[in-house]
Design a protein around this nucleic acid. Sequence first.
DNA 1: TATTTATGATAGTAATACTATTATTTAAAA
DNA 2: TTTTAAATAATAGTATTACTATCATAAATA
Lengths: 224, 224
Amino acid sequence: MKLEVQIKMNPSLYLRDPEQSELGKNIINYSIQLIQKNGFEAFTFKKLAEAIGTTEAGVYRYFENKHKLLVYILSWYWGWLQFQIHYQTNNITDPIVKLTMVIKILATNVEDDIMTSHVDESLLHQILIVEGTKAFLTNHVDKDNKQKLFKPYKDLCNMVSDIILECNPTYKYPHSLSSTIIEIAHLQIFFMYNLPSLTDFNKTDKEDQILAYLNHLVFSSINK
Amino acid sequence: MKLEVQIKMNPSLYLRDPEQSELGKNIINYSIQLIQKNGFEAFTFKKLAEAIGTTEAGVYRYFENKHKLLVYILSWYWGWLQFQIHYQTNNITDPIVKLTMVIKILATNVEDDIMTSHVDESLLHQILIVEGTKAFLTNHVDKDNKQKLFKPYKDLCNMVSDIILECNPTYKYPHSLSSTIIEIAHLQIFFMYNLPSLTDFNKTDKEDQILAYLNHLVFSSINK
DNA sequence: TATTTATGATAGTAATACTATTATTTAAAA
DNA sequence: TTTTAAATAATAGTATTACTATCATAAATA
């Protein structure tokens, strides 16, 4: 028997559930490929439709617009990250070790997860790095937030926040530190590859250096 | 005699220097207003031209496209921030006090600077918070970087980096910490107003709490 | 005064972001 | 098995965006 992880998606994100049909699954898969390859700005429903072999109208039956589709795939990944953290820190008792594991999950490139055969997590991770903040840095963030589109992100943040509090119950900024870890992990990776003078990481052992930086930042902060 | 601060802009950003004409200055001013009000995605050269009372083609004579215009106004603000830091930390000898001042400049809302009569820094600060990362989170970041479009941002980062090293010459991640401070200052402000559950700040004394968080994060980190 | 230069007015194109219509296929219900 | 409903394909069309091109005119400069 094959175990499959199912991540429950907010129905406000789609018009028709993409997980319920072949076309829907294609839309998700090819979106991930195209957004990762050319960036979100260059991504259009027309190009997507051509890649899949369907028509623009076909895509519009599933998603209202490309922003909702972006938030859909990001939500999926936020949910998957939450599951990963839960799964991989399950048997760890020491909260320090737990938090170290969390940082590693957030900041290092993932290998493709066999429990979700239909999605390539490695590509999603790269999308999160470059396009993640575009989910909420819009003028309709309020409207989207009221529709609970960022709940998976908040859940993830809360989960990390709880682990921080396990390490130090008196630490005053667990939520801010959580969102800081998540966002800085992505930004430092982006800078490292694209604007390296904004970082202190040299060409060798890049991921380890990012981890070292994040660990230093986080643990100096909570052990005060 | 009136002192005016001049910020030198990279000529690759524009086709015709907007500071050399009334129309050019209008383009900058109205862009700032419109981008702040409606967000960068909703901003178009047509709407800008209508607001100014010129034509679309008129705007295109100054800027190749709206991305370059965004980077132009962000560069201006990065340059202005660098000047502010220089100016306001000039007579401070204690590097800790200096760095505290830097954090304050980066993270609190600025009052309009009388030395730059033609630009509203408060609006620019709000633009930097929401649109700042969009300057480089593109698929043409490499091309832009080769044209030195991010030099003002890097200069700012280096300046902060140097102050960090003054505080602790053995600290290993001065550049990463600089870019972290800059970006987290903006993100936490954005979260505080739009997605508050990603922070630990309540409705009173918001700015002070952000400052407290950033100071705690930075100084725990470099005093190790 | 002649000439360059900036602007205004207008037109036009290709691509984007959609909506609508109809025919056809596929799947579910009767 | 037939009927019906639902999903898809094919096509067309609209408004807006992101530009480029042309030409006339006004202002600045030589």
